[in-house]
Design a protein around this nucleic acid. Structure first.
Length: 553
RNA sequence: GCCCUCGUAGCUCAGUGGAUAGAGCACUGGCCUCCGAAGCCAGGGGUCGCAGGUUCGAAUCCUGCCGAGGGUACCA
């Protein structure tokens, strides 16, 4: 991308200035260019002179002058200027800028890179317990995860998206007991929902579906334990519903991984346990088996097998990550978790290190929790509370595009509040429509032009000299940098903000520059080309966010 | 108590070492005989929680304090 080329110019200027004796020899920090806020400061700015003034024992402005004298010529650069208190500013050449239009317009994958080429990356996200429907707070992880997956693919990674199904353990057991109670009730028995069970109505619906399909196959004599096969049927039904609900917001996985399969004889769970035991990381105490994590600098030990013989979530999670990072051979794994799992990060990483797996290959991205409100009233989110606001309900009211945009535009580090009462209103005011409207407008103009027999064929981009045209072009050139930033920080929020800026630049252009003009066909063709380039970048940005790019609204 | 995250315009939030801190919503005023007014233009509104420190330069980094959310289970 252009920024890297200009960065190289500064590095070359430094080396040349030093070898010419205009600057003393010293090891300089890495050169980084930034975008000045004010247009009069140019398109890119290097603060290197300010950072090395001490090393050079010179005033920053003098350093900048020495560098400027050695900056090699470049087709994209019209001017290199020194500004107080010691910046080195670069200004684009208008001809070069305009010439980027056809390059962008013809590259549907504009902004892609090969940063992750040859690396297999797994992103695991959402993975809500399959003990109830997906609710709106779960959706935040789904939107972040699916967007990151798209962006990482654009960054050259080979990406697999996975949902980890917690189908064993105590929550699954309680789910099974609740389901059996509901199932029995359908046969007229006076069964009670267990304490800490799942009282929601959806359990009745699942029981009904099972009864419709299997009749009384799972009905045992009163007082007898229920058939564990019922649990699996129930979990499968719930998982199927989750899968369908997530499609509503454009979340689809490459794989669904069952926690239970880790525990087969001789599987990852057995292996990890014996491996940890051999390496001396296991202690037994109070009838339970512990991972001796305090020896590894953790604040405490952690139970991995409870005194009732059942593995904890932590134990199977070690096995799960072992499986991903060794057996399945991913180079990197990204887990996206709600902040309520924050305490789990450090002990999981320490367990991987204990198994000689470099825990740096695992990135856990935490997002702060979503709270729900209806007006001034706080709505509880727990599945074990009666009321559940499902993702499906919210999406049907607010729409997938507005929901995704809402979750993408805020930093994962900020807790957010979803107000159901304002959801509809907020959706109408959602900036996503501002962006989509830009896309629809472009489609409309291209359509009109085609109707009049006009196209961008043979366009001369050098005619794009209007201030609004150049501003728009400058925005188009930013996409590669935005994608690189998301790949590096694993935070998606630059995408929607960029989309909004780009749409804004387009709307200004549209207001000031008439595209289809019978009296000036050459200019019309050039502007149509600019529209095509803008459409490529807008559509690409929206597509990476999982938001639709409509031709009409 | 200890650990993690947050505190920026009336509201919702961007901005994580640069030059005069931004956007959307809300508010005030203006712009459609002309490609979509879901748009554009102009305006008001800020001690960037508080106090120190580091730096040529701090909303951004460090320390302390205040406030909010989360964690600190033989739940997941």
């Amino acid at each position: 991308m252009i920024r890297d080329e200009l960065t190289a110019l500064v590095e070359q200027a430094l080396a040349a200035a030093q070898s010419a004796g205009d600057l003393p020899e010293f090891a300089a920090p890495e050169v980084e260019l930034e975008h000045p806020q004010r247009p009069e400061h140019g398109d890119y700015s290097a603060n290197l002179p300010l950072r090395i003034q001490g090393l050079a024992h010179m005033k920053a402005v003098e350093v900048a002058e020495a560098l400027r004298a050695h900056v090699p010529a470049h087709e994209a650069v019209a001017a290199v200027e020194v500004a107080q208190p010691g910046f080195l500013n670069f200004r684009f050449d208008d001809g070069w800028l305009a010439a980027q239009t056809p390059v962008i317009a013809s590259d549907a994958a504009y902004g892609s890179s090969q940063a992750g080429a040859g690396q297999r990356l797994q992103i695991e996200y959402l993975s809500a317990n399959p003990t109830g429907p997906v609710h709106i707070a779960n959706a935040r992880g789904g939107v972040i995860g699916s967007t990151l997956a798209s962006v990482m693919r654009a960054g050259g990674y080979e990406v697999e998206e996975e949902y980890y199904i917690n189908d064993s353990g105590s929550q699954a057991a309680i789910f099974g007991r609740t389901l059996y109670a509901r199932y029995q009730q359908l046969f007229g028995r006076d069964a009670e929902i267990p304490e800490n069970g799942y009282p929601g109505e959806y359990m009745v619906e699942i029981a009904q579906v099972i009864k419709d399909e299997a009749g009384d196959r799972y009905l045992k004599p009163e007082g007898e334990e229920h058939d564990p096969a019922l649990d699996r049927v129930g979990i499968d039904a719930m998982t199927g519903q989750i899968r369908e609900d997530l499609k509503l917001i454009g979340v689809e996985y490459d794989g669904w991984f069952s926690e239970r399969t880790l525990q087969v004889e001789g599987g990852p769970y057995d292996h990890v346990l014996s491996e940890l035991r051999e390496r001396g990381h296991i202690v037994e105490r109070d009838g339970a088996v512990w991972f001796a994590s305090s020896q590894l600098g953790e604040s405490k030990d952690n139970v991995i097998i409870r005194s009732d013989g059942a593995p904890t979530y932590f134990a199977t999670d070690i096995a799960y990550h072992y499986d991903k990072l060794t057996d399945r051979g991913f180079d990197r794994v990204i887990d996206i978790w709600g902040a309520d799992h924050q305490g789990h990060v450090s002990r999981l990483k320490s367990s991987l290190d204990a198994l000689d797996i470099d825990s740096e290959r695992l990135h856990v991205l935490l997002y702060q929790l979503v709270s729900l409100r209806r007006g001034t009233e706080v709505v509880p989110l727990s599945k074990r509370a009666g009321e559940i606001i499902t993702l499906r309900e919210v999406v049907e009211e607010v729409g997938s595009d507005a929901t995704r945009y809402f979750f993408l535009a805020t930093s994962p580090n900020s807790a957010i509040e979803f107000d159901l009462e304002l959801a509809q209103k907020q959706s109408e005011e959602n900036p996503v429509f501002y962006v989509q409207y830009a896309h629809a407008r472009i489609a409309g103009v291209l359509d009109k032009a085609a109707g009049e027999g006009l196209s961008s064929e043979g366009a001369d981009p050098a005619l794009l000299t209007h201030e609004a045209e150049r501003t728009l072009l400058r925005k188009l050139l930013l996409l590669p940098e935005i994608l690189e930033q998301v790949v590096e920080t694993l935070e998606p929020q630059p995408l929607p903000h960029y989309a909004q800026e780009l749409a804004g630049a387009f709307h200004v252009f549209y207001t000031q520059c008439r595209v289809v003009d019978e009296d000036n066909e050459a200019l019309s063709r050039a502007r149509l080309l600019l529209l095509e380039a803008t459409r490529v970048v807008l559509a690409r940005t929206l597509s990476l966010m999982g938001v639709s790019a409509p031709d009409q609204m």
